Simulated scan of single mutants.
Amino acid sequence: MIAVSLSRGHVELLQFTRDKTALVFTFLFPAMLLLLFGTIFGDDYTDSGVSASQVFTASMIAYGVLNTAFVTMGSGLALDREDGTLKRLRGTPMPVSAYLIGKALLVLALSLAESALLILMGVLVFDMPLPDAQHWLTFSWIFLLSVIACSLLGVAVSALVRNARNAGGILNVPVVALQFISGVFIQPMSQLPDWLITVASIFPVRWMAQGFRYVFLPEAAQNQELDGSWQLGTVALVLGAWCVIGLLLCLRTFRWNNSER
Score class of each variant (00 low, 15 high):
83 D>I: 15
115 S>C: 10
190 S>V: 14
147 V>Q: 12
77 L>M: 12
106 L>T: 03
114 E>V: 14
175 V>Y: 02
86 L>I: 14
88 R>D: 11
185 F>R: 02
127 D>W: 11
90 R>N: 14
202 I>Q: 03
195 W>P: 01
116 A>Q: 03
139 F>L: 12
196 L>W: 12
193 P>A: 07
81 R>C: 08
99 Y>W: 15
148 I>K: 04
190 S>N: 13
84 G>I: 10
166 N>E: 14
103 K>G: 02
202 I>C: 04
110 L>S: 00
199 V>L: 15
103 K>R: 14
140 S>Y: 08
159 A>H: 13
135 H>R: 15
128 M>E: 05
141 W>A: 06
143 F>W: 13
134 Q>S: 15
129 P>R: 10
80 D>W: 09
120 L>C: 10
192 L>F: 15
172 N>A: 02
98 A>V: 05
199 V>H: 06
143 F>L: 08
208 M>W: 02
155 V>G: 02
113 A>G: 04
148 I>V: 15
91 G>D: 00
149 A>L: 03
138 T>W: 15
84 G>H: 09
177 A>G: 07
169 G>V: 07
126 F>T: 10
194 D>K: 06
76 G>N: 01
86 L>R: 06
142 I>H: 08
88 R>E: 13
182 S>K: 01
142 I>R: 03
162 R>E: 14
98 A>C: 12
150 C>S: 11
197 I>L: 15
98 A>F: 09
176 V>Y: 14
82 E>P: 04
114 E>N: 11
188 P>H: 11
180 F>P: 07
132 D>V: 07
116 A>N: 02
150 C>W: 07
145 L>V: 12
98 A>L: 08
128 M>D: 03
177 A>W: 02
137 L>R: 11
148 I>M: 13
108 L>C: 00
155 V>W: 02
167 A>E: 06
208 M>Q: 07
118 L>K: 02
205 V>T: 12
171 L>W: 08
124 L>D: 05
206 R>Y: 08
161 V>Q: 01
106 L>V: 08
195 W>D: 01
132 D>T: 09
119 I>W: 02
152 L>T: 03
169 G>W: 09
146 S>V: 05
102 G>M: 11
95 P>S: 08
82 E>L: 06
202 I>H: 02
144 L>P: 04
119 I>G: 01
135 H>N: 13
100 L>Q: 07
100 L>N: 09
134 Q>A: 15
126 F>M: 12
129 P>S: 09
179 Q>D: 00
192 L>V: 07
105 L>P: 01
164 A>G: 05
95 P>R: 07
137 L>Q: 09
109 A>W: 10
83 D>P: 05
102 G>A: 13
107 V>E: 01
163 N>D: 15
113 A>K: 04
164 A>E: 10
199 V>R: 08
98 A>D: 08
196 L>D: 03
117 L>C: 00
150 C>E: 08
171 L>V: 09
141 W>L: 04
133 A>W: 15
169 G>T: 04
137 L>M: 13
187 Q>E: 09
82 E>T: 06
146 S>W: 05
198 T>Y: 12
179 Q>F: 12
171 L>P: 01
191 Q>P: 03
200 A>F: 13
92 T>Y: 09
